[in-house]
Structures are given as C-alpha cells and as structure tokens.
Design a protein around this nucleic acid. Structure first.
Lengths: 325, 325
DNA sequence: TTGTAAGCGTTATCAC
DNA sequence: GTGATAACGCTTACAA
C-alpha cells in the first residue's frame, strides 16, 4: 500500500494525497474521497520514505548503561511518557556498561537514524567527549552534570544535606556509609552534603565507611561501621539499597530504629518502603527527571531558546527510620 | 555524507561502494580505497534509504503496558540484550495500560516501521485479536499464553505448586494470599497450583484471602488472613510484593519466620531479598524470558521452523522464610 | 486547488 | 569486477 495506490483509488494525484496527509490545500470533495480510500485500506505512510525525504525520523535514541535498576527504569519510563505522547518513538540502546557500545550507538544514531539523543548516566570519558563533540544532533545528558552539554541532573549535595539534618535529630554520633568518591554523583557529592550539614550543625562525624552499591554491601558496611564505632547512633547512606542492607543488620542485632539509631538515605526506590521501618529518604523523583530530559530535548529539536542546565528537585520523604522533632 | 560522496572520493561508482558495504565483488585495490574514504569521513549508510529500498529496518517494536515494574524492566532488558547483540534496534512503545494505544502502535509498527513485534503482558481482548489478525509482521507475545499466536510464557501453575510444597514442610495449616482470579497468570493459575499441591499432599487449605498487587495490600491481606484463621502456619502468596507486605506484618506482630509461620511466593524480584528473612520463591527468571522472546522473534523473522509456544522454566529459590527438611 | 517531475540515499538488475 | 540506471515511497517546487 502506498500513496500512489491511494491516489488511484480516490482519483487524484500522489501530491494531493500527500498534501492531504500533511495538511496542505485540498478541496473538500477530494478530502472526503481520499479519506475514504485511506480508511478502507488502512493505509499508513511509509516511515522510511518519509524520513528519507524529510530527514525527520520522529525517533529519539535513548542510550542506557543497563536496564536493571529501579532508577534507570523510572527515568526511561519518564522519557517514554513524554516522547510517546508527542508522537516520537523511543529507540532504546542498552550498552551493558560497555563504553565502546555507547560510542558506537552515539555515532550510529547520529547518522539520521534519530532526531535527538538522550544519554543516560555514564561517566563521560575523554573518548566520550571526542565522540560527543562530533554529534550533530541535539543531545541531552540525563542523571549527570556536564559543563559542555545540555543536561538534567540531581541535586545530590543538598539531598544528602537535608537527609543528614533529619537523621541527626535527637542523636549525637553521626556515621555514614558512603559510595566511593570516584563516583561523583553518588559518592562524592552526597558525602560532601553529609559533611556540610555536620559542619553547619557543629557536629563531628563519628565514623565513615565505604561500601559497594548492593544491598549486601550495605549490610556488611553497617557491620563494619558499628564494629569500629559502636557509639554511632545515626547512619546516612549514599543510596537506598545500601540503607536497606544496613537496616537489616541493625534489626538482626536488635537495635531499635529510630530510638537507638536512625537511618536515612538518598534515592527513593521501592526498597525504602520494603524495609522495616520504612526509610526516611531524599526521593530523587527519577520519573520526573526523565520527563524533564525528554522535554529539554524536544525544545532543542524545535530550536527553542531554553536553559540547558536543568537541576531536578528532590522530595524529602520522612518515614519511621528517623525520629520526629 | 552519502554513498555517492564516498564513490567520488575513492574514484569508483556508487554500486561498487554499495557492493563493498554488502560484501559483494570488489577488487582488493578498490576495497582499500573505499575503506580509506569511509574511515576518513566516518560515513554511515542512511538508515532510511536502506530500509526504503530493502524493506528491512533492523528495528523491533516492543509494546509494553508500563515500565514501572521489576518484572517488565527485566523482560525488556532481556529483549534488548539479544536484539542489540544481533544488530537490531529496540523501539519501545509504552502504552500506560491504554488499550487504544496498544492497538495504535500495533498497526503503526506493522507498516514497515519494524521487522517484528513483541507484545508484552496484556490481556488479549477481542479488539486485540481483530488487530493482531491483521498484522503481517512476525509477532511474539511475552508473559502470556495464547493459542493463536507465538508466545513465551511462565509455568505459573507448577511454580505455585512447588513453592506451596516447600512452605508446608513442617506445618499443617496452609493459607494463601491470592491475586484475583480474573488475572489468569497471577491469580487463577497460581491459586490452582496451590490447591493442586495441597490435594496431592492430602492437606486442606485453612484459609484463603484475596489481595491487590501492592506491598500494602499484602500487609492488609495477611492481617485479615490471620484474624480469620489464627491457626494458619504457612502462607503462600501469589506475588513477591504481596509476600513482602505479609512478612512485614508477621514481623510486627512478633511471629517467628519460619518457626511459627512460613512464607513463600512466586516472582523473584529484588524485594524477596530485602525482606527479613529472605523469601523462598519461585523465580520466574524474567530476564531469560525476555531473551527467549527475542530469540523466538528472530527465528520467525528468519522464517526458521521453530516451536512457537515456549514455556520458560522457573527456579525454586530457597531462603530463610521456609523451614529446611 | 491540482498535477508534473525531481530528488532523498540506497540496492538490484543488467550490460559491459 | 564494474558502472549505468531504475526503483523503493514519499515531499516539494513549480507550473498549470
């Protein structure tokens, strides 16, 4: 089925059908003839022919490092929500944390395959920069800040600060379970937030231990923290998964949360609800950030003049793991 | 940049470049000239022109009801793993549980936009069947069984049966928290599995309550179950989220798991690990099922003669919420 | 308001 | 082995 067939069926020329499809001048009588023919045949214009001709694909490339985490799923969901609503298709490239794959898709997408690109949460290496600078298409970085490119990112520092402030209420020996600081967002910035808060409140940190991102890692880290600093009575964790592990350990050794020890984290995934008690956390609102990234990209595609550095807001979600004022 | 430019740069014709790209006859000397030109320019063939000409898009449409759940994320991850590896792009359509959207994407995709379609876990209505029967492209249903279409689905009944068998070890008053049975996979089949097991083991069910899918729902359902049947000493839950809620309630009222009461479920998401103790569950291996669906679709595209009804295997994951033999 | 014709960047056919 | 040339299905000047 093609525009040519529709033209024949309705007794007009190809161009008239094309004009009908694209909202150009068509007489009422022809309009109805064409409409009838299209409905009868279920005709849908060829995507390939359209984009070959117009250089518009109505597709957006979304490059993700992995699809297994709550946060990434939510961001992608937020992206698709906006994009599908606006008539765009989302082309998903899952790189499984493989930098070369990332670069491959970047250049693959750039060659008229899509109208814009969203690159999700990877470390931007020099190789990336080299490739990114070649990109001719509008591009948005999501979940990471970078001076040189449009981006949507989290307020990691303040999120950490606000949670820390909450967990130390009614406690005097704060501790932290931190992600490694070579991870800027999750490690460094959140740790900075913790220390900035303590400084403002004029309290010393009692102890800090490093931990991997997993639930188990948090469990082990908590054990270590309490062994080294048994007097710790509040724990701020870089991520929710770690915090869940910590809570499990505290439960197992009979600590009362939040009476004996309070816990808080940055994140906001479901795991915060599954823990007992529920975790006080700074909810990063991943879904919304996905929305924002999609909106920013659409603005760039439309060549609108917009702010290309978008920091998303977090929401302090107060639950049973911290004392009330 | 186009094949024509490359031809000029390397002093051959368009067709020779095309042949080079597609592995046809090209002399060694021309090969190296063309190779050099392509490398210098970073040329990538136009996706639109290729698919207009060949009718092959190297894109697969994946239609999902939502992207917010662990199971769907995992399945999509499994799909992208295989497809990206095979050089296909995944075009994701998120319908937000909207049936009309689903039908829209089905017909949109069918018109040469993609080479095949994976439709993920929705109820197949009559309207769906009407639309599905129109589809000319290869199509695979994932996470649901249907007589009329190729599909990859879970062994819900046996998964439930095996978990039930495990939780009743050392207990004599089984109870169940069940999803509503109008949901065939999650509700009906898993309930059937529970009862089939009890029948084989010659035990009566002490009590059954219905519950929504949420964590909270499981919590409330567990409360109800124990109120109506305080003697219940093992609980089988249709899903992991429900089970987590149940475990939380049991912890709160001071029941010892698994000594006083054992708990198990079908599912296998992270939440099973976050609960205390960890939940014995039938892991449905969502990721693998995504793999399988992608593989089946690729076989169909290649017109290979394969079995179009694929039941995936589950894995009994034994954890602290049930007694050992 | 409509139709003709050119062209988007490929691949496929065929003659050389 | 190679190069013209037509064709894929659409949009868009331009002419009518």
């Amino acid at each position: 089925m093609s525009i040519k067939k529709i033209a024949e069926l309705s007794g007009v020329s190809k161009s008239t059908v094309s004009r009908y499809l694209n909202g150009g001048y068509v007489s009422e009588s022809n309009k109805s003839k064409i409409k009838a023919a299209i409905e009868k045949t279920g005709f849908i214009p060829s995507f390939a022919a359209q984009s070959l001709r117009t250089k518009v694909t109505k597709q957006i490339g979304v490059i993700i490092p992995k699809l297994n985490s709550y946060s990434i799923s939510k961001m992608v969901a937020g992206i698709t929500e906006i994009l599908n609503k606006e008539g765009y298709y989302v082309v998903l490239a899952n790189t499984e944390n493989n930098e070369d794959e990332e670069l491959k898709y970047l250049s693959l997408f750039d060659e008229n395959h899509v109208d814009g690109i969203i690159l999700l949460g990877t470390v931007i290496t020099d190789k990336h920069k080299e490739e990114l600078n070649k990109i001719k298409l509008p591009l948005v970085l999501l979940a990471q800040y970078h001076d040189d490119y449009p981006c949507v990112y989290f307020d990691n520092l303040n999120a950490a600060k606000v949670v820390t402030k909450k967990i130390i209420k009614g406690h005097s020996n704060p501790g932290m379970i931190s992600a490694r600081i070579d991870d800027i967002s999750t490690g460094k910035l959140r740790q900075m937030g913790y220390f900035e808060c303590l400084k403002e409140e004029n309290i010393e940190s009692t102890g800090l231990v490093y931990s991997g991102f997993g639930f188990e890692d948090g469990y082990e880290a908590c054990k270590r923290l309490l062994k080294e600093h048994p007097e710790v009575d509040s724990i701020f964790c870089s991520t929710d998964h770690m915090a869940c592990g910590a809570v499990l350990y505290l439960n197992q050794i009979g600590k009362k949360i939040p009476e004996d020890i309070s816990v808080g984290c940055v994140g906001g995934s479901e795991s915060c609800l599954f823990s007992n008690p529920r975790l006080t956390n700074a909810n990063l609102q991943y879904f919304t950030s996905g929305n924002k990234a999609a909106e920013l990209l659409l603005s760039l595609i439309k060549k609108e003049n917009v702010n290309t550095k978008v920091m998303t807001e977090f929401k302090l979600d107060i639950n049973g793991s911290t004392k009330n004022d």
